[in-house]
Design a protein around this nucleic acid. Structure first.
Lengths: 219, 219
DNA sequence: CGCATTCTTGCACTCTCTGCAAAGTTGCGC
DNA sequence: GCGCAACTTTGCAGAGAGTGCAAGAATGCG
């Protein structure tokens, strides 16, 4: 998909393509904020982004993807630079999910997406389901990590794979719920107003802390 | 989905309605098994079930629901008979999910659904997403249980709700992965073929055991 | 039997999404 | 600059999902 011949930086083509994608995403998010998810048609998004209906589908496979600004290529690229050795599997899985999510994102995007997700939490579930499509690939990566972990050393490959799936699922749930909190967190408060958008890393740290708390209480 | 053969006290109308739902479900599942999920159209399902396209939508809101034979009414009914006091939150949540799943299910249904899920694991994710739609209601129920649990006694209501959401998510992931195993388990063995379908309860017991194992290893 | 309720169905319609082919752009070597 | 190759945009045609409506059929109950 990516062109390999970069003589100096990015060509006009790639820049234009990125611009169009951004325009469609912004249009989609704004319209959904104004009118709601179901009330926003792809025709309307295309019109605001000044492209044809057909071109919309050249950039995003669905309305939801456009609203969230998901860049399939960036996600795939992220998967290819996964590191081999990892200390704590749980932390590593969170890092992985974090990387995938951050893969598609500018700055403006995030504020918009946050507002959109606050208005339509179902999108978050959808987002997770998307990651779940990568379940097989991700699980194998995680299972590979587990092989190097003494606590899973006695298991068979099949057992490790199943446990990897479970760990992935658990981490995804944790992230989703934390994101929900993030989206729902009202930052129009009175306090010092500097950077009131939470640092994404903080969200993940908090997520992993919550998970550990719950796991301890339940064991 | 109500048992078609259970005519106790039900009028002809209700029996016929159950029969039609069953017929549509069977037709959908069989066609998907034969031709695949995307290749099966609602028109084809309707034709095999001998109803009109329009009638299909009187029974199921989507193709996926028909394939899985989901009975929205039965699920809702199940939610209403949730017990108050519960011993172990984790076990209780599994019981709850179990009840919801079993709510829609005849006997024949299960063998079919199993084969279908084996062929199209995405349906399982979809199934879980459906339960996730009940997240708010379920989470509140679970949060109520947590209030009676000493380990969560010091938390605020908001904290308990968030942890309830997380617990629900974790249990759902666990169930999904166990179901995957269940669907994938090859039962074409040599022995007598009657009841080699694993007992659903066993699946849940195994699921909860797997979860505990992983949680212990990760703490 | 007759009336109210419910179920089925056809019809028309919107919306998502895909394939195809024609026309326009861009990049690059010459 | 020229022209070719690659890429992009767009319109068009069409399948498929899903909904609202209203006419007509089946059912149940008094």
């Amino acid at each position: 998909m990516r062109d390999v011949n970069d003589s100096s930086g990015l060509g006009l083509r790639e820049r234009k393509r990125a611009q169009t994608a951004e325009a469609i995403h912004i249009a989609a998010a704004e319209l959904v904020l104004e009118n709601g998810l179901d009330e926003t048609t792809i025709d309307a998004i295309s019109a605001r982004a000044d492209v044809s209906n057909r071109t919309f589908f050249n950039y995003f496979p669905s309305k939801e993807d456009a609203v969230l600004g998901i860049d399939e290529g960036a996600v795939a690229a992220e998967l290819d630079k996964v590191h081999d050795t990892q200390e704590d599997p749980l932390a590593a899985v969170f890092d992985l999910i974090y990387a995938i999510f951050e893969a598609s994102g500018g700055k403006q995007r995030k504020e918009l997406s946050r507002a959109v997700i606050r208005k339509h939490p179902q999108l978050m579930t959808r987002q997770m389901a998307r990651v779940a499509d990568l379940e097989d690939r991700l699980s194998e990566i995680i299972a590979g990590w587990l092989r190097d972990d003494e606590r899973f050393a006695d298991d068979t490959d099949a057992e490790r794979l199943e446990q990897a799936r479970l760990i992935l699922g658990i981490c995804l749930s944790t992230v989703r719920i934390s994101m929900r909190r993030w989206a729902g967190h009202d930052h129009s408060g009175s306090g010092a107003g500097s950077s009131d958008t939470p640092d994404p890393r903080k969200i993940y740290e908090r997520a992993i802390a919550t998970l550990r708390t719950v796991m301890e209480k339940l064991s």
